[in-house]
Nucleic acid binder design. Sequence first.
RNA 1: GGCGCCUUCGUCUAGUUGGUCUAGGACGUUACCUUCUCAAGGUAAAGAUCACGGGUUCGAAUCCCGUAGGCGCUACCA
Length: 411
Amino acid sequence: MVRVRIAPSPTGIPHIGNTRTALFNYLFARHNKGKFILRIEDTDRKRIVKGAQEAIVEILDFLGISPDETYTQSERIDEYKKYAKILLDKKLAYEKEGAVWMKIPQDQIFSWTDLVGNKSISFKSQDIEEFVIIKSDGFPTYHLASVVDDHLMEISHVIRGDEWISSTPKHLLLYKSFSWALPFFAHLPVILGKDKKKLSKRDGAKSVLDYRNEGYLRNALLNFMVLLGWNPGGDNEIFSISEMIKLFDLKDVNTSSPVFDIQKLEWMNSVYIRKLAIIDLKKEIEERFKDKLKNVSEEILHSFLVLAQSRIKTLNEFYELIKPFIEKLDFGLDGKEKNIGKKLLDGFLKISNWRKDGILTVMKKAMSQENIRMPIVYKILTGKESGLPLPESLEIVGKEKVIEMLKRLDV
RNA sequence: GGCGCCUUCGUCUAGUUGGUCUAGGACGUUACCUUCUCAAGGUAAAGAUCACGGGUUCGAAUCCCGUAGGCGCUACCA
């Protein structure tokens, strides 16, 4: 029975790198019809951040990778004390200054086969320092708590970030001291920033919640994350969650650290936005801009969505695109622009059947007369030199609104 | 410093046991096509002597050794 776990400490909101570890664990569990467990490691009482635990749960929920079981270490203190006592009784640990320290045996080799890269990693006991297993405040350290819990919770595979490699021999020692069977270990390379240093805030170490707020889709985030350090071979890059589950294998996890590339995430998101049925895109947009779209009819929104779908990389960009058509913007026009605006206004007034073709004809006529190109027309009508297709957009908005807008601009 | 991990286009990567790799795909970049702007779509180009140096071999990105660089750990943090 495969049982895996993620063990975040609620010391902050996990960034996208940590969330990728959760995803890999989830995929491994589902692929092997096993269980995916969340264990909150809140043993460092001083560093606990309020709301962090809730954020962790919210992230998993949003991504659709919620755990099958959840545990909290601070509720299991007696368990850790019990096992520390066993080590004390066996004289494998000793007390010093109110803390319990693990003794390191001499001349031993601690090694395991890591499932990432399928290689053997070993440490000599002389390179391992004595370490605390129960702190003077009575709480266990990560080393003790995670080993005890992994054993008790029957974790079959420990899949975690590779910053834990150096701690693994300590864990091996603990398993050995208790005579417990070892789980398999798989250490994932950590995600790096553009500068090849640890992911920091400025290069995208945001949380999935941040990306959601910026208008990234769940499936795009999932797809992007899974490709950071995993590739099933072949040229396909777009995977649904069920395809990921079907294909996921630790042997296809890379050994080197990937660099986070926001541009690829943006592209991935635009791919998923384009894949969305309009009705689903509409739901996303309506939810996001509830207030701002209050006075926009369903029909108009729908028409704009069709025009905007291939032009946005994030959901948030949608509003910027339709803003010129639904808000009463006041952008200044210079004399020449006003002149052209007047021509457009006159032409528009003469249109009896307000359709894009007729609208375009008026624009073309003005453009050839004034010897200008489309961007100027955009500037006059929207305040920007590019945007959603103009004739279509003006048709959607309606003749009266367009006339009214041009008059407001005092052309 | 010590210990450990890593090293294929700017970035994500393919590369199952050495040979069809004059190293493939994707993002990004550039150009062209399409075109009412911008996107999307289509086509094409530039971009990696596979970190470097030695081996082994008829033949190595793929095997061996060494070097360098990067990263991680080195807390009564996880």
